[in-house]
């Protein structure tokens, strides 16, 4: 990750914006395959190319889009999809609440724009930058904007390529499995404590046991069960 130059002089808007863009470059490399796979998976689930691309622009949240495409493919009804989206994305409350105090001096327009660009990836580098006491707060929102725009462009472009390729790739390749693999790659490194491990195991097993519930509600129950066990174990 490239850190913005630290100097006694206050970095200008452009310098901050570029630093934000550059901070996303290594992350963007990792995001490109997910965008590609999302495009492919979304078409495999039955979305039209326009719908698949629009979801990237409107929702702009990778894991929720993967799950959303899968649930739509399985014919899950609308309230379940919305509830699932909420459960999967509720972690963004933490990011927003953490960055919020440093954005209070900004205009409404800025705050509405930056909220749209608040993804896991943009948060990761922006939070580090905001925590740096060497740089004054004055133009730090330009860093946020640069990071957010870079990730946005990467996501939209890679989705478009994935949608383009998706029509050419046969289902027998099992590319839908890439979704589960992506999640394994995200989750396993997070299992560093016993409560986290317990949350994962309980959620997974509950999901299997509850799969007969209608409307994919098993996912919601399983998530709640995992969270409950994790919190309970941490209190022990």
């Amino acid at each position: 990750m490239q850190e913005p130059a630290i100097s006694a002089e206050e970095p200008g808007r452009q310098a901050e914006w570029w630093a934000g863009v550059k901070s996303q470059l290594p992350i963007a490399l990792g995001v490109i395959p997910f965008g590609l796979i999302y495009g492919v998976v979304a078409l495999a689930a039955g979305l039209t190319p326009a719908q698949a691309q629009a979801m990237s622009a409107i929702v702009f949240a990778g894991s929720a889009q993967f799950i959303g495409a899968e649930l739509m493919g399985k014919g899950a009804p609308l309230p379940v999809l919305w509830l699932t989206t909420f459960v999967v994305n509720v972690r963004h409350l933490l990011y927003s609440a953490q960055l919020g105090p440093d954005l209070q001096h900004l205009s409404r327009g800025w705050r509405f724009l930056l909220a749209y660009l608040l993804t896991d990836e943009a948060y990761a580098t922006t939070a580090v930058h905001y925590a740096d006491p060497q740089t004054p707060l004055t133009h730090k929102h330009w860093f946020f904007l640069g990071a957010g725009m870079m990730l946005w462009l990467t996501w939209q472009t890679s989705t478009a390529v994935g949608v383009f390729l998706g029509a050419e790739i046969p289902a027998s390749w099992g590319l839908d499995f890439a979704l589960a693999l992506t999640f394994i790659g995200i989750v396993v490194p997070l299992l560093t404590t016993r409560p986290m491990l317990a949350a994962a195991v309980v959620a997974g097993v509950t999901a299997v046991l509850a799969h007969t519930l209608p409307y994919n509600l098993g996912l919601v129950f399983a998530g709640l069960a995992g969270i409950g066990v994790g919190v309970w174990m941490e209190k022990q």
Binding site: I67, L93, A180, H211
Partner: peptide, 23 residues
């Protein structure tokens, strides 16, 4: 609430992964 939110990604993603693997 913060403590509960911390478990959300692991719990939700595991609930998606395991059925994909064993059924």
């Amino acid at each position: 609430l913060r403590q509960a939110l911390k478990f959300v990604p692991v719990a939700v993603l595991s609930a998606i992964i395991l059925p994909e693997l064993i059924m």
